[in-house]
Computed example of a mutant assay.
Amino acid sequence: MPEGIVLPSRLASDAALPRAAESAAWAVLDTCLVGIGSAHVDRHGRLSGPGWLACPARNAPAEEDLATALLQAGAGYAQPTGQDRQCLTQRLAAETQARTARRGIWAEPSAVAPAGDEEAMAIRAGLFTVAEGRVLAAGGTRDRIFLNFGSSWRQDFTAMMEREDFATIMGDSLEPAMLRGTLVQVRGVVRAEGGPAIMLRRPGEIALLAGAQARAARGKRGGE
């Protein structure tokens, strides 16, 4: 398994997703050589590490980044890890290209979960998920920030992060309250915290969607 990408699990609520991912991945890997460097075995017994792809039969450039190639084909989701920001940006861009072209998993409506639908999020418990929706409430405690996507904060889907991580993840120009009403995308493993939730730990796991950046900027200026 190359670092930087998550392929849909066969446990996905929509069986079309792993089928589409497998088809897209085979289209990339067919007749190519694959290498994994500095690999380690993860908790599921899978070999994981940075990967490269060489396809001499296709006259392709040598040693293409494997995760990026799979993402461009629509085989999976970009996963922010410990890689540098430039590498993350490249992989997120590859995912966006595939989504725009509706390649692979992005031809399926279920590829993106509706963050405001608590049942749709709950059935994804334990699975890596990309979800999008409007933040209805934003606040927190001394230690954590909570972004709620429904009217019942004990049951609805929530994105959480440690308060000390907020500036690293969101940037110095934002405050939690400024996210109220904005459209966002979050990614990570859904877990049960009363209701379904994703814990955000690093940049790239949350993104403001079209128009949200401008509204947040106006909110910042209005509070100055």
Rank of each mutant, 00 (worst) to 15 (best):
L29Y: 04
L29F: 05
C32D: 08
V34L: 08
G35R: 11
S38V: 02
R46L: 14
R46N: 12
S48W: 04
P50C: 02
E63H: 03
E64F: 00
E64P: 01
A69V: 09
L70F: 04
L71H: 04
L71W: 02
A73H: 04
G76W: 03
A78W: 00
Q83F: 02
D84V: 04
R85D: 03
R85K: 00
L88T: 06
Q90P: 03
A93R: 08
A93V: 04
A94C: 08
A98I: 07
T100Y: 00
T100A: 10
A101L: 13
I105S: 05
W106T: 13
W106H: 13
W106Q: 14
A107E: 12
A107N: 12
A107C: 11
P109Q: 09
A111W: 01
A113D: 05
E118G: 09
E118K: 15
R124N: 15
F128G: 14
T129S: 11
T129W: 00
V130G: 04
A138C: 06
A138V: 03
G140F: 00
T141C: 07
T141N: 11
R142K: 15
I145A: 03
F146H: 12
F146N: 07
N148G: 13
N148Q: 11
G150W: 03
S152W: 05
Q155H: 12
Q155A: 14
F157S: 12
T158G: 07
T158K: 12
